[in-house]
Design a protein around this nucleic acid. Structure first.
Lengths: 229, 229
DNA sequence: CTCTAGTTGTGAAATAATGCACAGCGTGAA
DNA sequence: TTCACGCTGTGCATTATTTCACAACTAGAG
């Protein structure tokens, strides 16, 4: 228990999430132990980086046997998750919103999308992918009632700014924003923007640069991981 | 023309894309000039950082008048884009794929989704959102014919690895991967994974940490920008 | 038991990214 | 014309992140 409550960097949190998902796959395959260099491959990092990350969750690797998968997975979960399943709301039930709803459904242990919101009267009141769709003006009420801590924002760019305001006002603590618009706040609310347009433009940019910018194998591996987002 | 062909960092490329989109909005509003501190707000960075980024594209800000929006936008485009519109393929026409197709449609100047692929016989041959859907086994042929440089991958996690192999084999140069699976390659192909599950887990993680980790205003602003992806 | 091979944990070095601070300049006012 | 203000471009300091490299340890072979 080395690193209790030591502030964990965002990058590390991101990687821990990726490690954990991979660990669960390994569990399914019946593996019981894993080495740092195996996990390193997943995130295209170095074994040293993986070990450092894992130290933050109480690094209990065993020399020459590596890490015990079950234990490690549990430890990561203890760090990333909360005792109670977290309730999440989806704002904006357009094409993207519905796709995200499907994407995030299924057996999730640590969170649950419990409500959706839209301001299209045709959608409100209906059940979409198993979740009730509320009118946007119900936001504050439902967020309070259902103790929703986090929101997924899938509204058009023009609507994003106001939606964020409303969400913060409603008491949400984190927002995962898919609208192609970067939004800041001076509140304590955590806003993570997934800027898909930017990501595609970036991919297109590097699609060509890569061809005539030969690098070492190692460099290339690192390049391929990328921000992961 | 300070920085011609100087290697531009990924972070900078990301921000340039964001700047450009904002510049185009400003253009629509009729603004003609912009200051570094205005752009800094957008990405929750510092003016110095913005100026550094812009220097890479030929920094031609004018003392006390700031940057000329039209010129700056064009210069960023010259750096990020290519003379020819880039052809993009979408792999996987499920819910998410179709949503992405819609999301990336509209008036894009620098790229165009020209084909979609799926291995569901029901989908193949049909026109989906205006794009012909091909069978996956046509990939190499079509990628060659249509000079597709970049692919958007929206297949289930299990299928991602093989899909990436096929795409690389087909000659694609960059992949934007939405499958919750990190994939590496030793080819020169640029793979950018948008790990939405990870992003949500991260958001949930920081939703709580933020509440009892008060920081300076400035720190908070930085936190709120986040990886942007 | 001893030795070898291979792995972890981690201090220290290296690298990358960010922010500070100021010289230099253009602008507009007087 | 002169001056004050405010902004850019940038060297340098600072901070964040990654990698190196090695001591300590474990397992297994002989």
């Amino acid at each position: 228990m080395a690193a209790l409550k030591q502030k964990i960097s965002e990058k590390t949190v991101e990687r821990l999430s990726v490690y954990r998902r991979h660990l669960k796959e390994l569990q399914k395959k019946g593996k019981t132990r894993v080495y740092s260099h195996e996990l390193a491959q997943i995130v295209a990092g170095t074994p040293a980086q993986v070990r450092r990350d894992l130290m933050q969750v109480g690094g209990n690797g065993c020399s020459s046997k590596g890490y015990e998968i079950n234990l490690l997975s549990d430890e990561i979960s203890e760090l990333l998750d909360y005792p109670e399943k977290q309730n999440v709301a989806l704002i904006g039930v357009g094409n993207l919103g519905r796709a995200l709803l499907g994407f995030f459904s299924g057996s999730r242990e640590n969170f649950d999308i419990v409500a959706t919101f839209d301001n299209d009267p045709d959608k409100c009141g209906r059940i979409i992918c198993g979740r009730r769709c509320y009118n946007a003006d119900q936001l504050k009420k439902i967020v309070g009632e259902k103790k929703i801590s986090t929101a997924i924002l899938a509204v058009p760019a023009e609507a994003a700014e106001n939606a964020v305001k409303d969400l913060i006002d409603a008491g949400v603590k984190a927002i995962l924003n898919f609208a192609p618009k970067h939004i800041t706040t001076n509140s304590n609310v955590f806003i993570q923007t997934i800027d898909m347009t930017m990501a595609l433009e970036k991919a297109i940019y590097f699609s060509h640069k890569n061809t005539y910018a030969k690098e070492s194998q190692h460099e290339r591996n690192r390049k391929n991981y990328q921000s992961t987002f």
